[in-house]
Design a protein around this nucleic acid. Structure first.
Lengths: 211, 211
DNA sequence: ACGATAAGTATACTTGGTGTACTCATCGTC
DNA sequence: GACGATGAGTACACCAAGTATACTTATCGT
């Protein structure tokens, strides 16, 4: 186990400096009111360096989401052997709600809230976030294939698509409620009920409602 | 019923001239190898005019998809009263497959194929296409609410999300098969089976497979 | 200490998209 | 059939995201 050298530590610091400068400016003035040149200035690096760390302006914000794109797949992959993929995801979402994990959309820490507001009302950010989400579908498809090799690829893909779409819709619904002023505390029971409902729809289909 | 005046006809012509110039150039050289300035030149209009007709470069290609955004919602809205929303969508997809409708991904007309190839291997185009798809979800959510007012908004939204995601995945799977060289004729039975499977998953859920 | 390697910079460029002020064609009305 | 209002189209200058090139400087392994 080698320590990270000076070079690595400096890279980390530069990364953080740029990211923080960007977020601060974005939160103060709005995403489109701040140019990357201003951010580079504030972080005391050249524009070229900035783009070496963050390939696009959007990534300055969404960088923090990237770690989470494979989360669904990871949950399925790490489940205990007797647990089904859906059961694992279900339990994980419920735990996330109880913990007020940002991923579930039920965190009302001010910083998290402003962050989500930024994303939701900047179209280019929402759009690029969806790009990431799509990669999550690929990962989950793969995880489902591993979990149940008997099912064919298309089935796994369809199921993964449904799961991601539903969980995403659920989280977004929670965000919007919180952005409207409801506290996480107050919304918790409703969010829990919505989750149960969503998993019921996933598991048993929508024929009962719309078939 | 008034005839379209000269002004309107000229607008139509300009629109077509720009669109055709763009598609030709894109198919010949690739989306990122052609600048909007070149397209404006080829269409003999100013850059400013081009952007009056097509708000972004991507829209030069995706303009033709816009008409189809609300298609799912329209199908649900126009169904006969005794038919359920899902049944209407199901029948419509099967009819589309039989007709080789481009929307279903089962058309192997060369022009349609090159068109889809262009979209699939240009990330910015795929991305913007997904933006449109999302608007389709909104429309379908609304249509489902009208169809079954007893269900709450979140349920409708979740169901709509699932439907759109699944049908999209189906179409994309068909495209890829056709782009790999299989004829629409040869793929038809498989595509039909996949559709039945997909609707079964939608209607009855995925608990049997992954629960 | 030293040479390889990689981080960072300065500068100029391309290109998508917008703002402004203008010309010119079409339209409805008299 | 001329006439003023309206809106399509143009020319030109501009902004900002991202890239290419050629360079300097800091860290690393030997």
């Amino acid at each position: 186990m080698t320590e990270p050298g000076l070079r690595e530590r400096k890279k980390l610091r530069t990364h953080r400096a740029i990211s923080e400068a960007a977020i601060n400016l974005f939160l103060s003035f709005g995403f489109d009111k701040v140019s990357v040149a201003q951010i580079a200035d504030a972080a005391e690096v050249s524009k070229r360096t900035l783009f070496k760390y963050f390939p696009t302006k959007e990534d300055l914000v969404l960088d923090r989401f990237i770690d989470h794109i494979d989360e669904y797949a990871a949950v399925v992959g790490a489940r205990s052997p007797e647990q089904s993929p859906l059961a694992a995801l279900h339990a994980w979402v419920l735990a996330g709600l109880a913990d007020r994990t940002p991923t579930t959309g039920l965190s009302d820490h001010p910083s998290v809230l402003t962050f989500y507001r930024l994303v939701l009302d900047t179209p280019s950010l929402s759009s690029r976030l969806r790009d990431y989400t799509l990669r999550g579908v690929d990962a989950l498809t793969e995880a489902l294939r591993v979990a149940k090799p008997a099912e064919d690829e298309l089935t796994a893909r369809i199921a993964a698509t449904q799961v991601v779409a539903v969980l995403q819709a659920l989280a977004e619904s929670n965000w919007r409620t919180l952005l409207n002023g409801t506290s996480a505390e107050a919304h918790y029971p409703t969010a829990k009920r919505a989750t149960e409902r969503a998993f019921a729809l996933l598991e048993n289909g929508i024929a009962e409602q719309y078939g």
